[in-house]
Amino acid sequence: MTLDLRPRAIALMGPTASGKSAYALELALRLHGEIVSVDSALVYRGLNIGAAKPTREELAQVPHHLIDVCEPWQPYSAADFAVAARAAIDAIVAKGKLPILAGGTGLYFRALLEGLSDMPQADAALRAQLAGEAEARGWAALHAELATIDPAAAARIHATDAQRIQRALEVYRLSGKPISAWQRDARGTRCPLKVLKLVLAPPERATLHARIQQRFDAMLAEGFLDEVRTLRALPELAAHPQPLDLPAIRAVGYRQAWEFLDGMSDPATFRERAIAATRQLAKRQYTWLRGELDTRGFDPSSQRGQLDAAVAGFLGGVAA
């Protein structure tokens, strides 16, 4: 039998508020590891409280990578993430440490572990055309158009997710091939790691919903709205013609807070909308996780012993 000599890594996947970050920190401290964030909100500077970014104390305890790498008005793609994450992983492995990949952004995990397809690059003129169509017809109408040409992509993309609707239509109009077909035919270089994929999630959806509500209320108490006010005051965002179209501001909670500060809702409605949006994110994450192969699922609260045993078995007992 041929020995698998690839460097090992642990991937902690799961829906938002499921306990991934806390367990990643615990593992990193116990196993002398370093954490690679796989979260599309944590890459942005200034998104701290609402993105549940690790605290300064936590960042000081363990090296974290792919956090605060760009400004909230700057573009950052899954391909950008994959390049930077692989560089971070190479550096971690070179030091003889364990990479711990933790987050809930499925596209980032796919780009890192499986590679991305060689689909058409962005086309500024076509994007401007699609933005004009959206302004005239609405993103829901463009989502309906996507459903006719690429039902698989439309099923994954929410009708309000302007960025992904635009990208899917852009790819189809440039190539005549649905983006879901490009993704199935991906030929990117797979990450050269032996990865233990662990899905952390409570067995009952109601438990996660309660955690989401409790966490959001804690964020409000911690000053989340003041954080959004600070973002709104940044010159680059204050001058942006459509700040709500930026991926950073579309992050769950931030969009609802921005609209609340624009006077579009009362405090109770804002809270309800933000919690509902976070639950919808969790639902999409569950859908992605069901399609992931070679995963093992655990409730980090009630199955800690089994979870630790899975890690120990993967690492040959060093985590026991």
Rank of each mutant, 00 (worst) to 15 (best):
T55W: 06
M119G: 14
A85F: 04
I100F: 11
A84W: 01
P75C: 12
W182L: 00
L126G: 07
E145K: 13
A186W: 02
T160I: 12
L193S: 03
D161F: 13
R137V: 06
V69H: 06
V195L: 01
R137Q: 08
V83E: 14
G104N: 03
V195E: 04
A186M: 00
I100R: 04
I149G: 05
A168L: 11
A131N: 15
I49E: 05
K194V: 03
W139L: 03
D90A: 15
P151D: 04
A136M: 06
E170H: 09
Q61F: 01
G96Y: 14
A128N: 09
R56F: 02
A91R: 15
A91M: 11
T160R: 11
A134Q: 15
T55A: 11
A85T: 04
A122L: 03
V93Y: 07
H64N: 08
G106R: 02
H65F: 15
Q121M: 12
A91F: 07
A124L: 07
V195G: 01
R187P: 00
D150S: 10
E114L: 07
A85R: 03
V83L: 14
A124D: 14
A82M: 13
A154V: 11
L174M: 13
S77R: 14
L146I: 09
P151K: 04
Q121Y: 05
A153Q: 13
A51L: 06
I92S: 13
A131K: 15
R137N: 05
T105Q: 07
L126Y: 06
Q74F: 01
G176W: 03
C191K: 09
L169S: 07
A111L: 12
P54T: 04
A111T: 03
R137T: 04
Q183I: 09
V93N: 06
Y172I: 00
I179F: 07
A152I: 11
A128H: 10
K177N: 01
P72G: 05
R127T: 05
S175P: 05
P75T: 06
G50C: 02
A51F: 08
I92D: 09
V195I: 10
L169A: 08
L193W: 08
R86G: 10
A82C: 11
L112D: 08
I179A: 02
H143C: 07
E71K: 10
P178Y: 07
E58I: 00
E58T: 01
L126C: 01
W182I: 02
A111Y: 12
Q163M: 13
A153M: 15
Q163I: 08
G115H: 10
A125P: 00
A153P: 09
